[in-house]
C-alpha cells in the first residue's frame, strides 16, 4: 500500500504566534521575524500533521499533499 506524505502550511492571516506548533514539533516549525510560524520540516505522515494542526488555537495549520 502506498503511504502518502504531507507537508503543513501555516496560514499567516490566521496564525497568532502562540508557538504551540513549535513547542510540539521544534524541528518542523519555526517562528518568523514577523511573529508568524512557518513550516520548515520534511514531509510527514498525515496523522502527525493532523495532530499538530489540532493543537493550533486558531486552526491556522493546513495539510498539503506532497504530490
Amino acid at each position: 500500500m502506498e503511504t502518502k506524505r504531507f507537508r503543513a502550511r501555516v496560514n499567516p492571516d490566521l496564525c497568532v504566534g502562540s508557538t504551540m506548533c513549535i513547542l510540539e514539533m521544534p524541528d518542523a516549525f519555526r517562528m518568523r521575524a514577523d511573529g508568524h510560524a512557518e513550516f520548515v520540516g520534511d514531509a510527514l505522515d498525515p496523522d502527525t500533521v493532523r495532530d499538530v494542526a489540532e493543537l493550533c488555537p486558531v486552526s491556522a495549520i493546513e495539510l498539503i499533499n506532497e504530490d
Partner: peptide, 16 residues
C-alpha cells in the same frame, strides 16, 4: 487581524 484576544505566547486560551 485585531489584537483583542492578545497575540503571541499569551493568546487567549479561551478564544475558541
Amino acid at each position: 487581524p485585531h489584537l483583542s484576544f492578545s497575540h503571541g505566547l499569551h493568546f487567549c486560551l479561551g478564544a475558541p
